[in-house]
Computed example of a mutant assay.
Amino acid sequence: MSKLASVISVSAPYYLGLLQVKMDAESERYAVYDRNNLSLVSAGIRPESGILKVLLPLKYTLDTNLVVGILDNDKVYASKFIDGVILESVDSTQVDMSQ
């Protein structure tokens, strides 16, 4: 007779920073920079829903070192950037990332 062992998988919490941005309908792209060294942290196109959700390193939940901006491809509107953004700490195994 064979014995089968049941395996139970438990996901431990894995905390990251959550950036959520309600992007303007005229914006097509976003960019996120680390203010300390101006390195690009994240960039991309506007989701169809207009609600951007990006998981970033936990260190950005502890300080105000992010600069977040939105841009349009046609250069009709002035780009908008906000300085001193701090992220919400979330358990990445539980957060709803649906757009």
Rank of each mutant, 00 (worst) to 15 (best):
Y14I: 12
V7I: 15
K59I: 15
Y33F: 15
D91K: 02
L55P: 06
S11Q: 13
S79N: 11
G44T: 08
V7P: 00
V7H: 03
N37V: 12
V7Q: 05
S89P: 03
T93Q: 13
T61A: 02
Q99K: 04
M1C: 06
V21D: 01
M23D: 07
A43M: 08
G69S: 14
S27N: 10
I8K: 08
G84F: 07
D91G: 04
S27D: 13
I86H: 00
F81G: 00
A78C: 06
G44M: 09
I51Q: 08
T64A: 08
V95L: 04
K75R: 11
L56S: 05
E26H: 11
D72E: 09
R46F: 11
K80C: 08
I51E: 08
Y77P: 00
Y33D: 02
S39T: 14
D24R: 12
K75D: 14
E26P: 00
E28A: 07
G84Q: 02
S89W: 00
Q20F: 01
D83C: 03
K80P: 00
S42F: 04
R35T: 12
L19Y: 05
Q20P: 00
N37F: 14
L38M: 15
I45D: 03
Q20T: 15
V85E: 06
L19F: 06
Y33V: 05
V95Y: 03
S89R: 15
G17L: 06
Q20Y: 01
P57W: 07
N65C: 07
T64Y: 12
V32I: 13
L56R: 06
F81M: 12
K80H: 09
D74L: 12
L58D: 09
L40T: 14
S6R: 13
L16N: 09
M97F: 05
L55W: 03
R35C: 04
G50T: 12
E28K: 12
V10K: 10
D63E: 11
V7M: 09
S9Y: 13
T61P: 02
A25L: 09
L87R: 01
Q99N: 13
E28P: 00
V54Y: 00
E26T: 10
V32L: 07
S42K: 10
N65Y: 10
M1D: 15
N65P: 00
L52N: 03
M97Q: 04
Y30S: 04
G69I: 03
A43C: 05
T93A: 03
S89V: 05
D34Y: 13
T64W: 02
V54H: 01
K22A: 14
T61Y: 02
M97I: 06
Y30T: 07
R29L: 13
V7R: 02
V54T: 13
T93M: 08
D96K: 03
S11P: 00
S42D: 14
Y30E: 05
S42Y: 04
G84K: 01
L38P: 00
M1W: 09
R46Y: 08
Y77G: 02
E48Q: 13
R29A: 14
L18K: 07
T61Q: 01
I70G: 11
D72L: 05
N73D: 15
A25T: 15
P47E: 11
D34R: 12
L19A: 07
G50E: 09
V90E: 04
D34K: 10
M1N: 14
D83A: 02
F81K: 09
E26V: 10
E48H: 10
I86R: 15
A25D: 15
